[in-house]
Each structure stands twice: as structure tokens, then as C-alpha cells.
Design a binder for these strands. Sequence first.
DNA 1: TGCACACCCTGAAGCGACTACAGGGTCAAG
DNA 2: CTTGACCCTGTAGTCGCTTCAGGGTGTGCA
Lengths: 143, 143
Amino acid sequence: MKIGELAQLARCTVETVRYYEKAGLLAIPERNAANYRHYGAAHVERLRFIRNCRALDMTHEEIRALLGLMDTPAAQCGEVNQLLDAHIGHVDARIQELTELRAQLMDVRRQCHSEQSVSACGILQGLAQMDAGEKNGRHTHLG
Amino acid sequence: MKIGELAQLARCTVETVRYYEKAGLLAIPERNAANYRHYGAAHVERLRFIRNCRALDMTHEEIRALLGLMDTPAAQCGEVNQLLDAHIGHVDARIQELTELRAQLMDVRRQCHSEQSVSACGILQGLAQMDAGEKNGRHTHLG
DNA sequence: TGCACACCCTGAAGCGACTACAGGGTCAAG
DNA sequence: CTTGACCCTGTAGTCGCTTCAGGGTGTGCA
């Protein structure tokens, strides 16, 4: 099949497919006489795998590692488990971070009691004066 | 004060300070004879405001809007409230998204019961076969 | 047969929010 | 004078796409 059909089957764009090929996530396919890419079932499966991992907010590095393990079927699956557990940890950390962030936002939001002038509004003052605390770098790649 | 001191007071890097100046978030400061930037208390307060907003995952656009309102103190604070509420909505949406994503990850994780070969491991099969569902675009700028 | 449209191709640039690099200048202390 | 810390500008890179520019291919219809 051609790239448009592959992209449709995996619910992404042809640009993304070409990008993954360039990024080394997807194998370089055969070409026809017109230089059009030609894909088979293996590509569909691999692309779906990649898209699913992306939907789960895994980085290309994480996906690359999983693909590597997938290509050594006789290996033990301990590493697969580790990778997944690590990623779940990242997600947990980001949820925690956002939850705390939300609490701070609600604090600030509560400083405005009624429609008034900006100069009297507690929100901007709150944003100017709050202590965001030490943000010791990101604990997860997730935004 | 010089840029290093300002950056320290606002807990960011000098590169970030220069970046904000170039991005128009921070006013262009005076310079001394050596072309070093010279900052005062107003810059400290503004940079702290910006950093706090960033800590709350607001975009530069959102921050720009708030700064605009801050610079019109006689205006009504309704817009400030709207901006904050909208942003809280973004955070909520992202928390929701990550929570769902986490549930999917746990589903997949549960498909591995014991150390075995990769080919028998349910995780990779789960990742290949799962239905991530339609991801109809991002509902929030937060990652 | 020619045209229009859908799809294909490559390479480069852009997005947002920084961050790092390259190469050079200034200042203060020893 | 030397050294190290800090300052400067401009450029490029990070991540994961997405868009743009410019050109080729295939098919259906008038």
C-alpha cells in the first residue's frame, strides 16, 4: 500500500510517517518505479505500535528501546517491564506536579472576591508575590 | 544590578532573561559604558511575575495578556479572572488526559504476569493491539 | 488528448520555551 | 599581567511534529 493508506490505518499523517522513517523508528520501505513508498502488513503493525506508544506519551527514546526489545523475542521481558514502570512513574510525577500547580492556581484565584479594578485585584498581586518554590528541574519529560 | 544578580533573584538563568527580553516579556533595560544591562526593582518584580506564571505552566501569550492588564490598573479585573479560569481549565484537562493515559498504561502493564521471553510477554502485544482511541487534537497546551 | 484533482516526493523551515555553543569583551583580585 | 567570573551577540539545537516550497505521478472526465 501507499503512504496515504498506511497513515490512515495508523491514524496519523503522511508527514508523520516520513518523519518516523527519518527518525529511524520505522523501517525504510521498498519503492516503486515512481519512487513511491510501498508498505506491507509489518509496517502497519509497527506504525500502530509507535502511535499507541505516542498516545501514551512515551518519548521516541522509550519507543526505540521497546522496539529493540521487540526485535529480540527470545530475551527476557524484565526490561520491558522496567521501561513501562519507569514511564508510569513519569506519568505519576507529572500528574502530581499538575495537581500541586492546580492547587496554587486555586489559591491565587481565590484572592479575587468581586469585580473591581485591576490594581485592587488580588490575583496579579498573588502572582507577583507567590513563592513558586524551587523547581529543581523536570522530573518527567511530560509537559 | 547586573543580569546575573537579577537571574538569581528570580531563580532562572541569564540566558532565560535575555530570551524574555527578546520575546518582549521583559522591558529593555539601560546599559552601562561596557554595554552591560542594568536592572532595578521593577525588573525584579516583573521577572518574578513571569517566572511564577511559567511555574504555573502559563504560555507566553497568557503571560503577555496578564502583563497587559497589569499595565492598565484602572481596568476591571474580569479579564484577569477569565484568563486564570481558562488556564485552570487547561490544567484540569491535562490532568484528566494523563489520568486516562495512566489507566491505559496500567491495563497494558497488567498483561505481564511473570518474567518470561519477550515474545510471550503481553505488554508489547498489548501496545501493538490496543485502541488508543481518537486523539482529537490537544485540548490544552500543557504537555 | 488535455485538464483537474488527489496523492506522491524531497528538503527546509517553523512552532514554543527554552538551552547550549561559539567567539569575543570587561572587571576585579592576586 | 594573568586568571577566573561574568558580560555580550548571534546562531543553532532540543523535542515531536507540522507547514511550506516546489515539483512529479496517476486517474477520471470532458
